[in-house]
Simulated scan of single mutants.
Amino acid sequence: MSEWAAKRFWTDATVASEADGHTVRLDGRPVKTPAKAPLVVPTAAMAAAIADEWQAQGDKIDPLSMPVTRGANAAIDRVRPQHADVADMLAEYGDADLLCYRADGPEGLVERQAAAWDPLLDWAAQTLGARLEPRTGIMHAGQDAHALSQLRGAVHALDAFELTAFHDLVSLTGSLVIGFAAERGAHAPETLWAASRIDETWQAELWGEDEEAAAAEDHKRGAFMDAVRFLSLARSH
């Protein structure tokens, strides 16, 4: 039965252990992904979170209220079968990382970027062995090949569930370094999100906040926090 059936068809969602992980059962029937694969996740904590999402549904299923279930589906149906391609795509962010492209003015923005972004680049150099260099302007300038190789290797080392979360951490911020800082708990997620939005925050302070842009920003922030939580659940034991 498709997990995205329009109406609720179960009473109880429970967690069960499998030989290769943990799953969720709806009135004893195992949940499957949209591609009909068994929904087996790496930790009991993630399975419990998925069961809670299913249990919280009303008469009709709302997939948007189930971020952990959606993340698990993506890991199993999309990321795992093409792990190398997804990792390569994300690693490419290193050569055009948000943190490396700096404004040439005004002075306040230049200082704000440097204060938030320079320490993150230093952290990447120390922790990941990858020194990325900042430059002024938006024209692309390639980074050191060794640094990019180090980053690529670290991306490929993530498993399918970790990589699923990492995809959102990187794509939502435009920064491979911020993605790794979130993945490794280098700073609070709110601090990292704020660092990724320095340009947008500056513009809002200068010209005023646009209601539609603010709503889109809030949605992206929520997705970033969901990815942080998904990654934590993937590693909880």
Rank of each mutant, 00 (worst) to 15 (best):
S2I: 05
W4Q: 11
F9W: 07
F9A: 14
W10M: 14
T11K: 12
D12G: 12
D12S: 13
T14S: 01
V15S: 05
A16F: 11
A16G: 13
S17M: 14
D20H: 12
G21P: 05
G21I: 04
H22K: 10
H22F: 13
H22S: 11
T23N: 08
V24Q: 08
V24R: 00
D27E: 15
R29A: 05
R29C: 13
P30H: 06
K32I: 15
P38Y: 08
V40I: 06
V40Y: 02
T43D: 05
M46N: 08
A49Q: 04
A51W: 08
D52Y: 10
E53G: 03
Q55F: 05
A56P: 10
Q57W: 10
Q57A: 03
G58D: 12
G58A: 09
I61N: 09
I61Y: 05
P63E: 12
P63R: 01
L64M: 04
T69R: 02
R70F: 12
R70W: 12
A75M: 09
R78G: 14
Q82N: 15
A84F: 15
D85F: 10
A91P: 00
Y93G: 04
D95C: 01
C100G: 12
C100Y: 09
C100Q: 13
R102I: 06
R102D: 11
A103R: 09
P106K: 12
G108F: 10
L109K: 03
V110W: 12
V110F: 13
R112F: 07
R112C: 06
A116C: 04
W117F: 03
P119C: 02
L121Q: 03
A124V: 01
A124Y: 00
L128V: 02
R131F: 01
L132T: 00
L132M: 03
R135H: 11
M139Q: 10
M139N: 10
Q143H: 00
H146W: 03
L148R: 00
Q150E: 00
L158N: 14
D159S: 12
D159T: 14
A160K: 14
L163R: 11
L169V: 14
T173Y: 02
T173P: 00
L176Q: 08
V177A: 09
F180N: 02
A181C: 09
E183N: 06
E183M: 06
G185Q: 10
G185N: 02
H187T: 08
H187C: 11
T191F: 06
W193L: 08
E200C: 06
T201C: 02
E211M: 11
E212P: 03
A213Q: 10
A213R: 13
A214M: 13
A215D: 01
H219L: 09
K220G: 01
R221G: 01
D226G: 03
A227S: 05
R229K: 15
S232I: 13
L233P: 06
A234P: 08
